[in-house]
């Protein structure tokens, strides 16, 4: 049950990352490089979070 919750959170964080990186493309298209870099960093942090959730879910299943 707990691993399913972590799986859902992992996918949600991945969607968050996708949303941020999509915005990053929009900012780069507007030549707003600083905003682009910041959103890209937030996107990477979201991917990292998603990876942690995936790890916990896998730990739950591996035990």
């Amino acid at each position: 049950m707990r691993s399913i919750l972590f799986d859902i959170l992992c996918v949600a964080a991945l969607f968050g990352a996708l949303f941020q990186l999509y915005h990053c493309v929009e900012f780069l298209a507007e030549k707003d490089y600083m905003a682009g870099i910041i959103t890209a960093m937030i996107g990477v942090i979201f991917i990292r979070t998603s990876s942690e959730f995936a790890r916990y879910a896998a730990f739950g299943r591996g035990e």
């Binding site: 990186l21 493309v25 780069l28 298209a29 996107g43 990477v44």
Partner: peptide, 21 residues
């Protein structure tokens, strides 16, 4: 340039946070 930058970010993130773990 934008597509290469995005590709670079994608490669680094996926390698560091999914493939290596």
């Amino acid at each position: 340039s934008i597509s290469v930058s995005i590709f670079f970010i994608w490669c680094i993130s996926i390698y560091l946070y999914f493939i290596v773990p």
